[in-house]
Amino acid sequence: MIRNAILSLLGLSLAETATADWAFNMPKGITDLSLETYRLHMMVFWWCVAIGILVFGVMIISLIRHRKAAGAEAATFSHSTTAEIIWTSIPVVILIMITIPTAETMVRLEDSRNPDISIVITAYQWKWHYKYQDEGVEFYSSLAHPSLAARRKQSGIDPFSVENYLLEVDHPLVVPRDAKIRLLFTSNDVVHAWWVPDLAIKKDAIPGIVNEAWFRAKKSGTFRGQCAELCGKDHGYMPIVVEVVEADAYEAWIDSHRTNTE
């Protein structure tokens, strides 16, 4: 157990430099809020480590020194009001210290006003439908073919030979960098959840209800995620790919798709 605690410590600090193949930790992501989320996560983590070292430390000292085999004589005390007051109030203080920055982040998460682009995302068993509210562009997005072939039971295709196995789609969502994007989620059948770790967005897509989230990507690139709420047999096979591109590339993309759908 101690070994594991150390291992985890090592793991999480390694993660700063780790490659994608041996990821230990949450990604920092590509938005201000994803970075804030990451920081909150690390802050709580280090609090837990600190408390853990303290508690386990005392316990281990006790396990070593207060063994019968080592000739320890048992004391007889059985309470101490002072000690109990201390170890009730200190955790309360710690928790309040954790809550304050967390609440600040939560306020920012809520603020989806005045977006540049609104996209309605409708979940289906088992694909996503994206509709750009004002641009007249809409399309379905489902698992890409190479993965589709390899995912069959005993398909004979080695998953390692498929690029981005299970994380590739036929039509990715394309958004411009630095724009405020509002996502509106709903579902056509059961509850799904749209999750892209690098955007720090995970939101349930619920039939009959519309949920909101927003992001402003600071980096361009391709970012992958998956459906995160059990939605039936192919729940594991409805990935999400978001391509963040420069503004002009986005305009070009929209134009080409607008003509395609008309």
Binding site: V55, V58, M59, S62, L63, H66, R67, K68, A69, A72, E73, A74, A75, F77, S80, A83, E84, W87, T88, P91, V92, L95, I98, T99
Partner: peptide
């Protein structure tokens, strides 16, 4: 988060029980 407080009390009490005991395993 508040649940951590009474749960902590339990953990600390167990550790305090072991403290200066004569443990066997």
């Amino acid at each position: 988060m508040m649940i951590a407080v009474p749960t902590g009390v339990k953990i600390f009490n167990w550790v305090a029980t072991m403290w200066r005991g004569a443990m066997s395993f």
